[in-house]
């Protein structure tokens, strides 16, 4: 493998990892607060793609991006209100099954509304400009994705550690019941979590699809699954963990293909998950939980 090819692979891997990281944060935050694996997150990511298509067709991309962000956030919060909130007191298993239900509902609803034929994703001219550096060739979005991911994560970590709502979120994730007794408005905290998660999914969606250019109702399934793995590997519940996990999955996947094992690239991702669960179930950044008797 020549240096050029190697660098091209690195670039691809890091860029893919960045998009994965943004989605993985959504999984990890919801899990941290609600102890719920939000299986519908991949579908929200996919629908954000459709929002962008229609928003751009109507208003152009400059207005389309904020419209997409807002619409995705609304969708995320609505899903939470309709499918998860009524089950707040129910066993954790019920709410997880509800999440799986929502995932299939969204997938089939989009198939019904937009058919399973791929829809072209709008081109954002600035992001699509192709740059050649040495022998590397990639569009701007490939370079921007990891940088934007890191910036957003710093903002998010700041919110969690230094604001009032962030403090509330940390409290809720430590102890749901006690924080409620302390006067924290649980529903507001949960809604905020979904707002942040969905907004990041929308940003991830714009970056991911701008690079890949077409959306189908099944576009969210595989990325969703992989980002869930990323969140687990990083230590589910931890934001920096999800980011590191996202980059690990993205880079590993690309490198497997680069080495000529394209057949096994996905298998490798899931083998990585199994190994992680066997030897360090809490993930890289996960905290050891001590059961109180």
């Amino acid at each position: 493998m020549s240096l050029n090819v190697f660098l091209q692979h690195c670039l691809t891997g890091i860029s893919l990892g960045g998009a994965y990281a943004l989605i993985a944060i959504g999984y990890t935050m919801v899990y941290g607060i609600l102890r719920l694996i939000n299986f519908a997150h991949g579908e929200i990511f996919m629908i954000a793609g459709y929002f962008m298509i229609f928003a751009t067709a109507n208003f152009g991309w400059a207005v389309g991006i904020p419209v997409t962000l807002i619409a995705t956030v609304v969708l995320g919060v609505v899903v939470e209100r309709l499918a998860y909130k009524p089950l707040r007191e129910a066993p954790r298993m019920s709410i997880m099954i509800s999440a799986i239900g929502v995932s299939y509902l969204l997938q089939n609803l989009t198939t019904y509304l937009f058919t399973a034929l791929p829809k072209p994703y709008p081109e954002i001219p600035i992001l699509k400009q192709i740059y050649n550096i040495g022998g590397l060739s990639a569009s701007l979005v490939t370079f921007i994705t990891p940088i934007l991911t890191i910036i957003l994560v710093f903002i998010l970590v700041y919110i969690i550690n230094h604001t009032k709502i962030g403090m509330a979120m940390r409290a809720v994730s430590k102890d749901f019941e006690t924080s409620r007794l302390m006067g924290i408005k649980i529903n507001k905290v949960i809604s905020t979590t979904f707002v942040i998660g969905s907004a990041l999914a929308a940003v991830g969606s714009i970056l991911y699809f701008t690079d890949r250019m077409s959306v189908t109702p099944f576009s969210g399934t595989l990325p969703g699954l992989k980002c869930f793995v990323a969140a687990v590997i990083g230590g589910i519940g931890s934001v920096p963990g999800a980011v590191v996990g996202g980059f690990i999955i993205g880079i590993c996947e690309t490198m497997m293909i680069a080495l000529g094992y394209s057949t096994f690239s996905d298998a490798f991702t899931f083998v990585l998950l199994i190994i992680m669960l066997l030897f360090r179930p809490t993930g890289i950044f996960g905290e050891k939980t001590i059961d109180k008797v």
């Binding site: 090819v5 890949r212 189908t216 394209s262």
Partner: peptide, 29 residues
Amino acid sequence: ETGAQDFKAVLTNIKSKNPDVIFAPSSIA
């Protein structure tokens, strides 16, 4: 893989071999 959306890595491999033609039978999606 079925449902894959990222082909850059495979294509980078292919590019390094410098073929005249890529034959890629696949679905519409």
